[in-house]
Amino acid sequence: MNALPDFRLFRPASAGEAVRLNTAHASSRFIAGGTDLLPNIRRGLFNPAVLIDLGGIPEMATITESADGLRIGAGVTLAKLAVDPRVVARLPALAQAALAVAGPTHRQSATLGGNLCLDTRCRYYNQSEFWRDSIHHCLKLDGDTCRVAVKSKRCYAAFSGDVAPALIVLGAEVEVLGEKGARRLAIADLYADDGMAWLTLKPDELLVAVHVPFDDAWTSAYEKMRIRGSIDFPLAGVSVALRRDGANIGGLRIACTGVASRPFAVDGLDVIAGKLFDAAAQTIVAECVDLANRSMKTTLVDALFRRNVTPVLARRLAQRLWNGA
């Protein structure tokens, strides 16, 4: 890998100062854990003149509890999130997703906000400069053709963060801070279906916290497929939340990651509310997930495998939650 290019490093003490620094410097990037950003910079994927290190901002590294739920600072590490007793007991999908990110050592540095804002990934993009040069680059960086879909005018790089689908099924909101103050938006609205512009954050905005409501009527879980069991990005990741209403399904929510340029909620599941979780319901779950799947040739593993495995993961998780609820 290349040496890091020259850049200035700032270490603000507050989120407001971080936003001001970002506005003041045109070519700047926020860095949190750096476990993805630093290797990407060294592969020549970005060349920022200024890095703004968010690791010295105490207000972003805390979890606060209210009657409604948790406010989790974007700077909370995934290792801390995965073992927080409130998260483990009441938001199991979030704890499982945090624990599924990368390896144990990454999670000591990597943060919630970093995983939510993770750059999209593709076999033609996450490569050395030499490699990318040899294929004359791709649409996402320095090229004019998407190597995954050559006639496409858009980039299909896949969003590969594990935590976002868990937060989608848990009904979380994100808090972002900009020059004009803070605003909150539903987690799904943080993303757009475009491998090159997958975040809807404005240039001056910083993700500072996530609000996750408690709703103990729901149980939830997260599972992913990956090449290295202990340390890899998802080939496909699925989060499921289920509410049981007596003998019937009260509600079912499913969200996926790794199979499109954004994490997304699966539509069409309302029809099984009020029904038994039987073979017919399982078929509907699998069909809805399959319909929403947008797996492309972005990983070395075949897209068809990722497409086939996603509904299986969803059905298996829903069954496990149903049995345990």
Binding site: R11, T35, L38, Q108
Partner: peptide, 18 residues
């Protein structure tokens, strides 16, 4: 080890552990 926690020195800026 950074404050007793295992971290990857190749993915960490020196000034990030001030």
């Amino acid at each position: 080890l950074v404050d007793d926690k295992p971290r990857l020195a190749c993915c960490t800026l020196a000034h990030g552990v001030a």
